[in-house]
Design a protein around this nucleic acid. Structure first.
Lengths: 196, 196
DNA sequence: TAGCAAAACTAACACTTATTAGTTTTTTAA
DNA sequence: TTAAAAAACTAATAAGTGTTAGTTTTGCTA
C-alpha cells in the first residue's frame, strides 16, 4: 500500500499542500484535478481527504500562508529605525528572496487567488490591500521627508510590486543571471533608474 | 431564435473571441465553460461551433493577435532614428497604452498562454522570447553608447516588462490615478528612479 | 499479541465538460 | 418565389470532476 512520505517537521497535510502548490503552479488551479494531485503525492485521490477538507482548502492554505508571511515582514520593517528609502529597499529585497525560496507558493498565491470562495477571497484581498497601503505609506513619508521625488505614491507601489513579481519569469540557469545580481540590479533600477 | 450581434467590421468569430477574452479574463481559461461563453454571447453552446473550431482555438486567437501586435510595434520602433533611451521609452508607453485599450486580450495573453496546445505553445514562446531579445538589444546598445548605466540587460528587461504588466492591477476609478499620470510616472521611475 | 485508530483502498455518486450528429430555422441570392 | 447556404437549435456522447461511503490494511500502544 502506498504511503505519504513526510520528512521531519512536516505533517502529511504539509506535504500535500506543497505538492499542490507545485501542481497548481504548473497547470493552474482549475486545470489540476485531485486525481492528478493524488498521483503526484503517491496515493489514491480519496485518501487525500483523510488529511484535507477539500480542494479549495488547499488553495486557501497556500494563499494565506504566503499572504501572512509578507504582512508580518512589512510590519517588522515599518517599525525599524532606518530611512524610508532603506525600508523600501528592504521590502523589495524580501520580496525577491521570498519569491526565490518559496517559488511555488508565491506563484500560486499571486496567480490563483481568484478561485478562492468567499469569505476567504475577501479576507485575502483585504490582506493584500493593507499590505499595499503600508508600502504606500513608506513612500509618502519618504516624499514628505525629501528622500524621494514627488511621484505619485500609488504608481510607485504598482511599479515596485509588479516589477518584483516579475522574477517569476527569471530563468534559473547557469548562463543567466544569479539571484544576487538580479536582486541588486532590480533594487537599483527601481530606486535610481537606468539612465546615466 | 437568438442571433450573434455583429457590429460593422466584425465577423461573428471576432465577436466570440472578444467575449471569450472577457470571460477568460474574469474566470480563467480552464474554469470557463463553452456553455457560459455561449450564454454570454447569447446563443446555444453548440452554435458557437459554426464559427470556431474549438475552445483552444479561441485562446490561440487571443494570444497570437496580442503577440503579433507587440512584435510589429517593437520592429517599427527599432528602425526609427532616435536615441536608445527614447526607443525604450516608446516601448514602455506602447505597452501601457495597448494594455489600457485592449485590456482583456492582453491580460489573457499574459496569464493563460500556458493552456495552449503544441505547436502553438512553442510558437508563442518563441515570439515572446524574440520580443524580449529586441528590447534587450536596445538596452545593450544604450549601454555601449553611454546613454544607460552598465546594468545587467537581462534584469533591466525583466524589470521593465514586469512593471508594465502590472497595470493590470490598476484600478480605473475616479479617485485613483489617470492613465496619463500612470504612464508618465512609471516611465520616469523605470528610467530615472524615485530617489532624490 | 490484541485492539484501536490512522490512513490507505475500491466503488460509486451526481454533475459538468467539450464536442458532434442530425434537424430546423433564418438569411441570402437568383 | 424558390433553392441553397448559413446559422441556429435539441439531444446525446464519452470522458472527467470533486467528493463520500464503506471496507481493508497498516502501525502504534497496552
Amino acid at each position: 500500500m502506498a504511503k505519504i512520505q513526510t520528512g521531519k517537521n512536516n505533517s502529511k497535510k504539509d506535504v500535500i499542500v506543497k505538492k499542490a502548490a507545485s501542481l497548481f503552479k504548473s497547470k493552474s488551479y482549475s486545470a489540476s484535478s485531485m486525481r492528478e494531485l493524488a498521483e503526484f503525492v503517491g496515493v489514491e485521490a480519496s485518501s487525500l481527504y483523510n488529511h484535507i477538507g477539500s480542494k479549495s482548502e488547499l488553495l486557501q492554505e497556500i494563499c494565506f500562508r504566503t499572504g501572512n508571511q509578507f504582512t508580518e515582514q512589512i510590519d517588522k520593517i515599518k517599525n525599524e529605525q532606518r530611512s524610508n528609502i532603506e525600508k523600501i529597499e528592504a521590502v523589495i529585497r524580501f520580496h525577491i528572496q521570498t519569491m526565490a525560496e518559496n517559488f511555488d507558493e508565491v506563484y500560486v498565491s499571486n496567480h490563483e487567488w481568484k478561485h478562492m470562495d468567499e469569505p476567504y477571497l475577501s479576507d485575502f484581498l483585504n490582506i493584500r490591500r493593507s499590505y499595499e497601503k503600508s508600502l504606500m505609506l513608506l513612500i509618502e513619508t519618504g516624499i514628505e521627508q525629501k528622500e524621494i521625488k514627488p511621484v505619485n505614491p500609488y504608481v510607485a507601489v504598482l511599479t515596485i510590486l509588479s516589477a518584483v513579481r516579475g522574477i517569476e519569469f527569471w530563468q534559473r540557469s547557469k548562463k543567466n543571471v544569479t539571484l544576487q545580481v538580479l536582486e541588486n540590479d532590480m533594487v537599483n533600477q527601481l530606486l535610481n533608474g537606468i539612465v546615466k
